[in-house]
Structures are given as structure tokens and as C-alpha cells.
Amino acid sequence: MNIFRLAGDMTHLASVLVLLLKIHTIKSCAGISLKTQELFAIVFLTRYLDLFTNFISIYNTIMKLIFLGSSFSIVWYIRRHRVVRRSYDKDQDTFRHFFLMWPCLILAIFINEKFTLKEVMWTFSIYLEAIAILPQLVMLQRTRNIDNLTGQYIFLLGAYRAFYILNWIYRYFTEEHYVHWITWVAGVIQTLLYGDFFYYYFQSWKNNVKLELPA
């Protein structure tokens, strides 16, 4: 494992912890898209089907369990927790997210590395992760006023993607040259989606003003 991959995993982990911190201690999920969180839960569920059959390392297994557990508990909090669910801005979160799954599934059936259930589900999870942030970005755009923790959560998610791209570049030059078009293309698209957000995030940070997206 290289430093970029580790940095990517750690920012990913930090993003989840920031979100859980917000939900658990402030008992609020204001500004958070349930649709995006549901898609992330599906992403992890379909990607880690090999959790108990394909052992890679203790690190991998633990991280997978953390991502699975945290994504499902976040969804549970927003839907079921009697205090947290009241802060959910349902009217701002209207993205038809399950419609995003069909094109990903069809694409995974036709464009994959091997036509087996596990492989197609894994590919599906890669495609779905690339666009799972969309409902959240739409919600940000609508609410415009973003609290610090929500801003940090999305910033850390974007940082995770950026580090993964550096990781792939590093792996390309240091390992045997296998070409991973599926992960690369999906990963780059996913990272580009954060570009706009990053721009405004750094602007607000540089000028030391509250993060606010233009209408």
C-alpha cells in the first residue's frame, strides 16, 4: 500500500466520522442527503460481497466492515432516529436516486471484466459510487447555506477521491502495467463532480467567509 492510497482511505474514514459526529452529537442531519447515503450503503453492500470469501488483509476487512456498518447506521439514523429524522430536509432532497441505479446496472452487465454475479455487482458498485454524490450536490445547491461539518464532510469525500487518483498514477508506474479502464474512468468522473464544490470551498477558506454556493 502506498501513501496516496492510505491518505485516500484515511480521508474517506474521516469523512464518515465527521458525518457520524454531526449526527450523533448534534443530533442533526440538516443539509445531508438521505438519497446519497442510501446509494453509498448500496455501493458498499454490492462491492464487498467477497468480504468473507476473499481475504486480502486485516486492514481491508476491518475497513470494509467500518464502511458497511457506518453507511447503514447513517441511513438508519436519518430514517428512524426519533430526534435526528426531524432535522432531515426532505423537501430539499427530491432527487430520484433509484433511477440512477438502472443505467449503472445495465452498464455493469455490458461493460465488466468478467461476466459473473460477483464481478458484475462489483462493477455496478464502481459505477454507482461515481454518481452517488449527485443528490447531495443538488441538495447543497438548493440550500446554499452549508454548515461547517457538512462542508468538511463533502470536502473530505472529494479529497478521498483525489488521493485515489494519485494512488492509481503511482500504481501505474510502480506495479505491472495493467490497465484498469473501468475504475479509472468511473473514478475520474466521480472526482470531477467535486470540482465545482472544491472551488467554492477553497474560495471561502481563502477569504475566511462562510461557505455559500451561488444560486
Binding site: N54, E119, N167, H180, T183
Partner: peptide, 10 residues
């Protein structure tokens, strides 16, 4: 390309 060699990522 070798199948599954990126399966060590999360």
C-alpha cells in the same frame, strides 16, 4: 488486463 487486481482497494 488482469481481472480483479484492484480488488485490494476499498
Amino acid at each position: 488486463p488482469k481481472t480483479g487486481s484492484f480488488k485490494d482497494e476499498l
